[in-house]
Amino acid sequence: MIERISSLIIPLLVLIVVGYGIFKKINVYDVFVDGATESFDMVLTMFPCLLGMIFGINIFLKSDVLNYVFTFLKPLFSRLNVPIEIFPMMILRPISGSSSLAILNNLFAHYGPDSFIGRLASVIQGSTDTTFYILTLYFGSIGIKKIRYSLWAGLAADVIGIVSAVVIVNLFFGA
């Protein structure tokens, strides 16, 4: 049942958006092309970040250092049913959106999107956002210097999001 509904989400979204556009007498195709054109700029700014992150993360992962350094974390992680491979994503998710998107791609490529790791990474990516980036961008744009407790409130939301992602994915797709 849930699967049926969720597989309808994307087609319905497309139908509603395009249908409403036609109803409002918008030149839907032209507007679509205009919007899609913006992706060129975005990809150009994203690629260097992506390359850098893949570079850093893959060297780090290939060294198997996770196995050495986090040996003491591993029992804790496995007790909580969290694959250690998710660790870099948990650390970088609040800091940089493009890096965690890069990690998500990397995990999909290595373990497949339908693996436990792939699902958990999807939910973490989908349920949190980049606190540091938003904080810097939004407050920077209006010259706020004293950010008070905002970093803590933002990070708390991230931690709650990641923890609930772990719990929920275990409940839904328990390994």
Partner: peptide, 9 residues
């Protein structure tokens, strides 16, 4: 592209 339709409409 899709979102641009949603914004414009």
């Amino acid at each position: 592209g899709i979102m641009n339709i949603a914004t414009e409409s």
